Simulated assay, not measured.
Amino acid sequence: MQEEVVETVEPVFGEEEVAEENAQAKQVEELVAKLEESDNRYLRLQADFDNFRRRTKMDLEATQKYRAQNIITDLLPALDNFERALQAQVDHDQAKSLLQGMEMIYRSLLEAIKREGVEPIEAVGQEFDPYLHQAVMQVEVEGSAPGMVLEEFQKGYKLKDRVIRPSMVKVSQ
């Protein structure tokens, strides 16, 4: 009997095939790295665009919220003048009717700016707040706590949550 000899043939790779396989693996790695870099760049660009859109929306909302600020700032000196004129004491009937007309105009101006979100800042009797009040005088008053607003020289105003003009006040020491 003859013995059969079975030979298994293992493929023999030459250096060329190994070098070619390594080159292909390296090329695949480079392509994967480029793809990841492109994905990262795309995600950063998308995040930048989202941030831009959010910033633009916030700017537009702030513009809408404070759109009346310039005109109100221009009207405040006129309101101050109305207040001074209304404090005048008159005896003549014609002057009294004129004063009543000025008071009506003054009230309608106050209502108009109130509809836009303008509020006067409360000052007298309040604790001094440097964000709301501008101290122009300090005096010592017995029986008054230090840092309290004693007198208001010029009324301050806020537009929604923004101070347009701080109140000019006298503060106790």
Rank of each mutant, 00 (worst) to 15 (best):
A145R: 14
H133W: 07
L150N: 06
P120T: 06
Q89C: 00
Q134H: 12
V139T: 14
D93C: 01
E151G: 02
E103N: 12
K65L: 07
L86V: 01
Q134I: 10
V149P: 00
D50W: 05
E83T: 04
E111W: 03
V124K: 15
Q69D: 12
L109W: 06
A145S: 11
I72D: 02
M58S: 07
D50Y: 11
A62D: 15
S97A: 08
E142P: 11
S108P: 01
A85N: 04
L110N: 04
V12G: 11
V90F: 07
E103H: 03
Q87K: 12
L45Y: 10
S38H: 09
L35H: 13
E111H: 04
R67L: 10
R67S: 10
A25T: 08
E15W: 09
S108V: 02
V12K: 14
H133S: 06
R107Q: 10
Q89Y: 11
I71E: 13
L109K: 03
L86T: 03
V90R: 06
V9F: 15
Y157H: 04
E36I: 03
V18M: 08
S97K: 15
E152R: 04
V124D: 12
F128Y: 13
A78I: 09
V12M: 11
E127N: 09
R53W: 07
Q87W: 03
E119A: 06
M137S: 10
N51S: 07
Q46I: 00
V28M: 09
Q89N: 11
Y131I: 01
E17R: 06
K96W: 05
R55I: 05
S144K: 14
R44I: 08
T73L: 13
A47M: 05
M104A: 11
E15L: 08
A68H: 04
S144A: 14
F13H: 03
L110A: 02
T63H: 15
M104V: 03
N22V: 11
R115P: 00
A145P: 06
V18K: 14
D39Q: 15
I71P: 00
D93R: 01
V12F: 12
L60G: 05
I71Q: 09
D74G: 06
F13C: 01
R44Y: 07
V118M: 09
